[in-house]
């Protein structure tokens, strides 16, 4: 069995009275691509910054490659931030030279490595232009180049497809997949489900300050789609009868969702609705397993959380800066 790249246990973090993480348990194995999903403001960036050692936990344990002190591991970790803020006054190559030196590279090895990563991310001749002239996509590329420059064992990536066009997103996904195949562990934070489906081996959903559900992407793909039956009004007796059919059946007053679906379960639900004379408006094969997994996790997590989550990451950061 592969060893742990990231391990957290009962990880808690608050900003003043605002509890952002309420006991996060996470295990990322070496060599896998692990996708962290979650709504805006769920604390994904906070979790990443805790793993990177930029934030200090209130409670709980964080170990990266079995070590708690992250400064010792900085040569083994690469980080691609969500917002592509880089030093505009430098060319891409100058920037990479500096970051390479900060990571302990030097001489011919550094320059060879820079040429390699420039080729890898497809920056080409733009590497000799000032970063201030770069488009958002090119900034994302220079960001990835700096993150992998020192050949880290663990790559922490925050919204890698942010600001990229569909072709760029696909290319970024392929790049990350290539890196994973060469032995890198990748911890990626995103809210793009298509990206997760294409890229990740395992995923978890952070909501209400906890990772409420984890799953392998392959297992979700095997589960297929959900089906939603839209109704005019669901009587209480029917709802009770549907509940008895199993946890795969969820409902509210205007719809019944079956996930994971099966012919037998669909037939049983339809029979119950027809028997109770419930008017069916539509039967919609609505979401794939991944989407449904995410929606269920968010629904369950929000129901379990007692305090409301902050509206967005930006709001949270603004609050923190003002508090400071």
């Amino acid at each position: 069995m592969a060893e742990q790249a990231i391990y957290t246990s009962n990880l808690r973090k608050s900003y003043g009275s605002l509890q952002v993480l309420r006991g996060v348990d996470l295990e990322v194995l070496q060599g896998e691509i692990w996708g962290l999903l979650g709504p805006n403001g769920a604390g994904k960036s906070t979790l990443m910054h805790l793993i990177l050692g930029l934030l200090k936990p209130d409670d709980g344990t964080i170990r990266v490659f079995g070590v708690e002190e992250r400064e010792q591991l900085s040569t083994r970790i690469g980080y691609l931030p969500e917002r592509p803020h880089y030093h505009n006054q430098f060319t891409g190559r100058e920037y990479l030279v500096t970051l390479g030196r900060l990571s302990g590279l030097g001489g011919k090895r550094l320059h060879d490595r820079i040429d390699t990563v420039i080729d890898l991310v497809g920056l080409g001749p733009s590497a000799d232009r000032r970063i201030g002239t770069y488009s958002k996509g090119m900034r994302q590329r220079i960001g990835l180049a700096q993150a992998v420059l020192h050949e880290p064992d663990l790559l922490i990536v925050d919204e890698p497809a942010s600001g990229l066009d569909p072709a760029g997103q696909r290319e970024m996904g392929l790049l990350l997949r290539t890196l994973s195949e060469t032995g890198h562990t990748i911890f990626v934070c995103t809210h793009q489900l298509t990206e997760v489906a294409r890229l990740c081996d395992r995923i978890g959903v952070l909501v209400g300050g906890k990772i409420t559900q984890t799953s392998s992407v392959a297992a979700l793909h095997e589960q297929g789609h959900s089906i939603t039956i839209r109704v005019t009004d669901l009587p209480l007796e029917t709802a009770n009868a549907l509940q008895a059919l199993g946890p795969e059946v969820r409902y509210d007053r205007l719809s019944v969702t079956i996930f994971p679906t099966s012919d037998a379960l669909l037939a049983a639900v339809l029979r119950q609705l027809l028997d109770d004379d419930v008017a069916i408006q539509a039967i919609v094969p609505e979401a794939d397993a991944l989407e449904q997994f995410y929606l269920n996790a968010v629904h369950d997590g929000q129901a379990a959380a007692s305090a409301p989550a902050p509206s967005t990451t930006e709001d949270l950061l603004e609050t923190l800066i003002e508090d400071r």
Partner: peptide, 15 residues
């Protein structure tokens, strides 16, 4: 204090 600092701070340069 700019966000550019995150990339620097995660290097062995340290705080």
């Amino acid at each position: 204090e700019r966000p550019q600092g995150y990339v620097m701070l995660t290097r062995p340069l340290g705080r």
